[in-house]
Write a protein that binds this DNA or RNA. Structure first.
Lengths: 197, 197
DNA sequence: GCAGAGTTTTGAACGGCGTTCAATATGTGC
DNA sequence: GCACATATTGAACGCCGTTCAAAACTCTGC
C-alpha cells in the first residue's frame, strides 16, 4: 500500500502530534506509545517512522509545541503596562500549565538517551521563551545593573520551572503551604525588587 | 529453589538498590530495568517481586535514599555560623547533585502512573529535607515576618530544584550565561535579603 | 489503457520490557 | 528421613520500539 493520498506527510505529522497530545493529556508520558498513536490516526506503526526518526523525536516535537504555546501566552501577557507586567507573566505562566499539566510534565519527564544532545530547533524554542521574559522584565529591573539582568531573569525562570515541576508532580503540597502561584509571585517579585547582591 | 540463605531479604534489598543506583549512574533511568538489576545481583527477575511491589517501588526506594543523602549533606552544611549558612547550603546542594547527577535527575524524571499517590514514607523524606532548610535559614530571615518565612523558604527550595533540573537536563546552558551555582546563590541571597512584598 | 518506475504503507518479525505464577529447590522442625 | 513451609525460579503473557522486505498504491510516458 502506498500513497493513500488521504493526507500529505505534513498533515500526517499534524494528526500524529494531535493524537500524541491527547494521549499525554489522558495518561501522561507513560500512555504515549508509537503503537497507540498509530492506532488513533488509523495507520500502521511503521508509518510513523516515515514521519519521525523515532519516538524520542515525536516527543521532542510535541514538547516544542508545548513551549510554543507557552511563548504565545507569555507574549500576550507581556503586552500590558510595566507596573502589572511581572504579575501578569506569572499568572499567564501558571494558567498555561494548568491548562495542560500533563503536557507540561512531559517537558521535564522526558530525557533523551545518554549522550544524545537536544537538537537545535529545540534549543531555539527555549531561547525564544527566555527572550520574551527578558524583553518584558528587563525594563522593570531598575535596581539591577543592565548586565546582571538577564542572569537574574534566567534564575527566576528556572525558579518558576522548579515550582511548577514540583506542583505538577504533586511533590509540593507535601512540603508546605501555599499554592504554586503564590510561590511564583513571591520569587519573581522579590528578585525584581531586591537588586544585585 | 528457595532459601538459598546467601542473603536475608534486607540484604537482598540492599544489593538490589545498590545495583540499581549503579545502573542509573551509568545510563540514567532508561538503563534501569528489573531484568538488569536481577542479573547484576545474580538472581532471577521474579525474585525482585518478593522484595518490592514492582519497579516503581524500587525507583521510589532509590529516590528516597537519594533524598536521604541530600538531607545529610545539607544538615552538615547547616552547622556553620549563621552568616555563611545560606551560601554553605547552596554549595552543599549543588555539590551533592554533581556527585550523582543521574540519580538526581531520576528524582524528577520518574512519575508514578496517573492516579497513584506518593507513599507516606516518601513524603516524610521531603518533609525532612525542607525541615532542615527551614531550621537553618529561618533565623537569618530577619526581614520576614515569622509566618511568612516557611513559605519563602519553600519558594527558594523549589527554585533551586528548577535550576538543578534544568542544569541536569542541559536545558539551562542553552538559555543563558552563568553556572547553576551562581544562579542558585543569586536566588537564595535575594529572597533572604528582600523581605516580604 | 497500459507498463513500468517510484513511493508510501504495511505487518510480521525481533529482541527487550514488566509482571505473574505453577513448579521446584532448599531450608527447618520433628 | 520426612513432611511442611518458603524462597526462588523461569517460562509465559502481553506489551513495547524499531526494522524491513513485500505489497499496494500513484504517477509518468506512451
Amino acid at each position: 500500500m502506498a500513497r493513500r493520498n488521504d493526507h500529505s506527510p505534513d498533515e500526517l505529522r499534524r494528526l500524529a502530534l494531535d493524537a500524541a497530545r491527547r494521549l499525554v493529556a489522558e495518561e501522561g508520558l507513560r500512555g504515549l506509545t508509537v503503537r497507540r498513536v498509530a492506532e488513533r490516526i488509523g495507520y500502521a506503526p511503521g508509518t510513523l517512522y516515515n514521519l519521525f526518526a523515532n519516538l524520542d523525536e515525536l516527543v521532542l516535537r510535541l514538547n516544542a509545541e508545548t513551549l510554543d504555546r507557552m511563548a504565545e501566552a507569555l507574549a500576550a501577557a507581556a503586552a500590558c503596562p510595566p507596573m502589572e507586567r511581572a504579575a501578569a507573566l506569572v499568572e499567564a505562566y501558571f494558567d498555561r500549565i494548568e491548562a495542560e499539566p500533563f503536557a507540561w510534565g512531559v517537558l521535564f519527564e522526558h530525557r533523551l538517551p545518554a549522550g544524545t544532545a537536544l537538537p537545535d530547533w529545540y534549543g531555539a524554542r527555549l531561547d525564544r521563551l527566555i527572550g520574551i521574559a527578558v524583553a518584558a522584565l528587563e525594563p522593570l529591573m531598575t535596581a539591577w545593573p543592565v548586565l546582571e539582568r538577564r542572569r537574574a531573569i534566567v534564575a527566576m525562570w528556572a525558579g518558576l520551572h522548579g515550582i511548577s515541576t514540583l506542583a505538577v508532580g504533586s511533590k509540593l503540597a507535601l512540603v508546605g503551604p501555599g499554592d504554586p502561584r503564590a510561590l511564583g509571585r513571591l520569587l519573581v517579585s522579590r528578585v525584581i525588587a531586591a537588586g544585585p547582591p
